[in-house]
Amino acid sequence: MDDASIVQLFWDRSEKALKEVAAKYGRFCHKIALNILGISEDAEECVNDTYLSAWNSMPPKRPQVLPPYLGRITKNHALNLYNKKHAEKRGGGNLALVFDELDEVLSGSETADSELFRKELLSLINGFLSELPSDKRKIFVCRYWYSDSVKDIAERMHMTENNVSVSLNRMRNQLRKKLEEGGYFS
């Protein structure tokens, strides 16, 4: 069933919408949550919360493409649970390493933390991604959006783990340089 038909089922308040969305995107959402939380039961809880949020948000929303919409909901639930469980110590899935790597991009700099700054930074990151070749962009998004492990990315992209790590390192440096050029570091 295509995404528009599934969204229509949500709008029709048909419980079949949940069947369809679980069949089509259950594993996709589970993977996103598992990457952040590292525990299957926690990930499953997030996926269930995602179905409920989707049920409550459609209508009024009518997303054109479901995976990013559902993925964002799952990610938010997973991050909330992660924050709740790791308020004092780090752990869980791949997230701690991902945070550390992104810390490198900003290291030694002072940046503002306003909503306007965040919007500008998002625009810059979208521009940065648009300039990357598709295979590099996939690696970046797999790591820093999906929190995929380097091993997973290597398998997905038919590369060695070392090559993935090197590519990620280069892209972090490129992003940092772009931030510097854009005057984002004071």
Binding site: F28, K31, V65, P67, P68, Y69, G71, R72, K75, N76, L79, L95, V98, F99, L102, V105, L106, D113, R118, L121, L122, I125, N126, L129, S134, R137, K138, V141, C142, Y144, W145, Y146
Partner: peptide, 18 residues
């Protein structure tokens, strides 16, 4: 914080990667 900003990147890139 940067991770949370990256969460809002263009939908096309999210779909493309997975």
């Amino acid at each position: 914080d940067l991770f949370e900003i990256i969460s809002d990147i263009d939908d096309n890139y999210i779909t493309e990667a997975h």
